[in-house]
Design a binder for these strands. Structure first.
Lengths: 135, 135
DNA sequence: GTATTTGCAAATGATTTGCAGTGCT
DNA sequence: AGCACTGCAAATCATTTGCAAATAC
């Protein structure tokens, strides 16, 4: 029900397919089209890839979700939450969020973006997570 | 000649195709496969897309160049230089570099990456450049 | 001379589109 | 009822692969 309203607030019709997408993203955090398709299919056998792509785009158009592109990996999608950075473990591939305040980052980060009016920052940190370091 | 050595230092054979790729990237800064192909073709009519892709990958393997993925845009490639962030103008699409010291950024940025051993940071700032603001 | 690289054509993978039928509001 | 949404199949665009001929070292 909550998800239904989320869609309506963004002027999108609340179809069961869309609700399923949002539910899944809510749980998975970041998810690729492929994984989205595999999981949703189990509950929703008739859904098509075309529908996924179309819905992903409608939802991006209204800023309900966001594209996450990571060098060397497949594009993932996530619900738009408050601004945050991504940390990706090169070993196990796990993708984690860490909170970031973009305004203060741009100030303290020592960037020289004179003249630019910045309105979004995408940050991906790569490294090895603590679990993988122990192996 | 400089480019030839650059390749050899990375244990790659210095073929004319590879030299052309490096030269072009040196000038263009960031470039997509498509643009790379179009421009190189003029001087090097016989080059194939497959060769471009293969070379791009060889060069990435030895960290001579780097993939730049930007939400909503085509993948671009650039010569690996000292760490920097990217600023993309949403209006005109221009992509600019700004210098960043990743170590101090991770310190002052207020990130909590406890346990992680970070070794790379990719930052893309989106906004409107000063030129486009005046229109 | 030998191992790598090139370029072609074909294969694969990812994403988009047209359209007839269906379902939300 | 009316317009937006779905799902299929086909189209398009991006990337990869196999292989024989050419090339760097």
């Amino acid at each position: 029900m909550k998800h239904e309203n989320l869609l309506k607030q963004h002027r999108l019709k609340a179809t069961p397919q869309r609700i399923a997408i949002i539910e899944l993203m809510q749980h998975a955090g970041h998810i690729s089209i492929e994984d989205l398709y595999d999981v949703i299919r189990k509950k929703f056998a008739s859904i098509s890839l075309a529908t996924l792509y179309k819905n992903i785009h409608s939802m991006m158009d209204v800023s309900l979700i966001r594209e996450v592109k990571i060098p060397g990996h497949k594009t993932k999608y996530e619900i738009e939450k408050s601004s945050h950075a991504h940390v990706m473990c090169k070993q196990c591939g796990e993708l984690k969020d860490i909170p970031v305040d973009p305004a203060s980052l741009l100030q303290t980060g020592g960037f020289d973006i004179s003249g630019y009016k910045a309105d979004d920052v995408s940050i991906v940190i790569s490294g090895i997570c603590s679990d993988c370091q122990q192996k």
